[in-house]
């Protein structure tokens, strides 16, 4: 009776029995083949406890980590803004430094040029230009206090060349007004450096950084060419002689005129003019 009940139960649970049997076989195989030892109840306890502790620790770490992260983000943001402002400040310093270095270089060149001249040169900085671009005048930061006199010639040194800028027309206490050679009201006695023909240079005025040489007779046109240097002649005694003015750019010969029209490009680049020298002939 009992055995038939067991066999009936076994038939009904054949799958479970098979499973248990196979798992037992497998477990025994593992135990025997791996020369392993079974885990002890203490190890299980430690593991279960450790797992619980780990979960709790992770939760605690997660919460504190999250709160810490929020604070950290806030700190980082403040630090970032501080660094950003510092960075901008340093960028400003860098630009300033570069500017100062370039200025230093320019001033060295100016000084070198000044020392090489026989005339007395008073260095000056252009502090203003005529904003209307009508009169082609500039203001320099030297005046009566510095010994500047009306009609003093102004020259500039750029790169490896120097040239005439203009003359002082008004002298203030610490500043002076300069009429440049580009101004249509400024006439400069000039001559060709090579051929020595003389004429008058006058500025073409508004919007044109050009000059024109007048009163050169047509007969002289074969004696000079484009690119020839024109210098001050010193004849009207306003400007010292021999200061470069410009170079011939274009020669126009009109049928009804007895003289040539010679367009002249100034030696000085007025668009990037910063420093000038006031020329004063040494007495004696």
């Amino acid at each position: 009776m009992k055995s038939s009940f067991l066999s009936q139960w076994a038939r009904n649970n054949i799958q479970t029995l098979t499973l248990v049997s196979l798992l037992l076989i497998s477990s025994t195989s593992i135990y025997l083949s791996g020369q392993s030892r079974l885990v002890t109840p203490a190890q299980i306890g430690v593991s279960v406890l450790g797992l619980g502790q780990e979960i709790l620790t992770n939760i605690y770490s997660g919460i504190t980590g999250f709160l810490g992260s929020v604070q950290e983000i806030s700190d980082l943001r403040a630090k970032y803004q501080e660094l950003q402002s510092q960075f901008q400040e340093y960028q400003g310093f860098e630009r300033q430094f570069a500017e100062l270095r370039a200025e230093n270089q320019r001033l060295r060149e100016q000084l070198k040029f000044m020392e090489s001249q026989t005339s007395t040169l008073i260095p000056a900085i252009i502090i203003a230009k005529d904003p209307s671009n009508i009169t082609k005048t500039i203001i320099i930061n030297r005046g009566h206090l510095h010994g500047i006199r009306k009609n003093d010639a102004i020259i500039a040194y750029q790169g490896k060349d120097y040239g005439l800028v203009g003359r002082v027309i008004e002298v203030g206490f610490t500043s002076s007004q300069v009429q440049t050679v580009l101004d249509p009201g400024n006439f400069v006695a000039a001559r060709f450096q090579k051929s020595r023909y003389e004429g008058l240079i006058v500025g073409l005025g508004a919007g044109k950084e050009m000059m024109r040489m007048l009163y050169i007779r047509k007969q002289a046109k074969d004696d000079f060419q484009e690119g020839d240097l024109i210098i001050t002649s010193g004849n009207n005694s306003l400007y010292p002689r021999g200061i470069p003015l410009g170079r011939v750019q274009h020669i126009t010969e009109k049928m009804y005129e007895t003289n040539l029209e010679i367009d002249v490009t100034p030696v000085v680049d007025f668009s990037r003019l910063e420093y000038v020298f006031v020329v004063q002939e040494r007495e004696g």
Binding site: L22, S26, S29, I30, Y31, L32, G34
Partner: peptide, 8 residues
């Protein structure tokens, strides 16, 4: 592998 582990 230790015999039986994959069987299990």
């Amino acid at each position: 592998l230790p015999i039986g582990i994959s069987s299990f």
